[in-house]
Each structure stands twice: as structure tokens, then as C-alpha cells.
Amino acid sequence: MAEGDATGFVIKPMDQFIVKPLFGGDHIAWYTVTNVTLWMAIAVVTIAALFMLGTRRRAIVPSRSQSVAELIYGFVHNMVEEVTGHEGVKYFPYVLTLFLFILFSNLLGLLPGSFTTTSHVAVTVVLAMMVFVGVTVLGFVKHGIGFLGMFWVTSAPLIIRPILAVIEIISYFVRPVSHSIRLAGNLMAGHAVIKVIAGFATLVVASPIVIGAVTAIYALEVLVACVQAYVFTILTCVYLRDAVGDGHH
């Protein structure tokens, strides 16, 4: 891949994000089986293995895989219940779906040589827009036109309320942007940094430091993968609270 560069010291941190057709050919149609397909399928299979095989025995005293599944279930369930209240528990399966997809994509993306589906803006924007559109529609269905009262901050003095309303509306529409870019940006940045640092390993002098640095950053990235899945999910819950919550905080 070292095209043209005579120095031989070429770091291409973004190469790992290229979408390639799995079975040859250059053209990517919407149905083409690509590495995106492969890694999403692996994520789905992993989730299926954990939640279908792991909970197969429905034991009162759980096996190891079953307790992992129960742990994830309980974690997300508590989060939804705490943040959105009892009204929000209805939407628990959607939130769990998002959480599982993001968590497993993030973690699988950390395997060497893998492809990180959640580092692509196209993917995260769709995830964030699903939440955004869903929450907005749900808010109008539940509260009718009263949902717009969310932007009218009654606790503030009357004079600055219009200004606050403008700010609130802007921040409302920025939500899906920050929601999606945060996830994609974090993962992209982490993977690119690992790649850049690993690229320096071609210098023999630097390689011991590089090995240590890559190990440390890899550990940080495992943490980031989990935290970003958590953050995405909890923000989903926070947005959901605006729509289904009884009062406007």
C-alpha cells in the first residue's frame, strides 16, 4: 500500500475505516455484502449467542454466560427506570437494542484487524436520528402541543424567556448531532491514535515505547468503548424522559 512514498514511513490511520466489498468488485450498491455487513453480523451473532444460548437453561442459579446476560439486562433496566421513571420502562427493549448494538460493535471493533461499524458517521447518525425522531414524535403524541412547553422555561424571568427558548430550541436540534458525532468521533479518534502510534513501530528505536503506549491506549479504548455505549444509552434515556416524563423538569 506504500504508494509512491520512498521513505517507507507511511502511516495511514484512516485505512482501517474503508468500506470494502467482501467478495471482490469495486461498486458498492446498497445490498452489497461488505465488511460492514460482516462485522454487524458478527455483533448480532455474538449477542444472539449470549442471550439465546446463555439463557437457554433459564436457571434460577445462573451460569456464567447467563449472569453476564442478566447483568447487562439489569444494568440497562435500572438505567431506564431511574432516568425515565416507570413510564419509560415500556421503551426498555428499544434502549436495550441500542445499547447492545453499540457495546458489541465498539468492543468487536477493538479486535486487531476488525472493522468498527460505530466509527462511521452514517451509522451513528442513523442511530441518533432514530432516537431524535422517536422522542420528538413520542413527545407530541403524549403531550400534544404542550410538548413545546419544554422550550418555554417558566422558572426564568419573563424577559429572558424568549432568548432561553431560542437557545433551548437550538440545543434541542443539536442533540442528534452531538449524540452521533460523540460516538463516532470517540471511536474514530481512539482507533486512529492506536494506528498512528503503531505506525511508529517501524522505527526500531521507538518500538519498545510504542508497544507500551499501544497497550496503554488499548486499555483506555476498552474503557472508552464501554463508556461511550453507556453515554449513548443514558442520553437516550434522558431525551426519552423529556418525552414521556410527567413534568417538564
Binding site: V19, T34, A48, Y94, A122
Partner: peptide
Amino acid sequence: MPQLDISTFDNQIFWLLVALVAIYMIV
């Protein structure tokens, strides 16, 4: 940046929706 390659967006979105539906079914 491969992320801004619009030609792959429809492909990614299609497979994302498939994956999400599959996970939703499992869940």
C-alpha cells in the same frame, strides 16, 4: 476520510437497519 464517502452510506444504513431489526427481534 472513509466516513465521508457518501457512496457507501446507503449500504451501511441498509445493513445497520438489518442488524438493528435482528437484535431487536432477539431482545
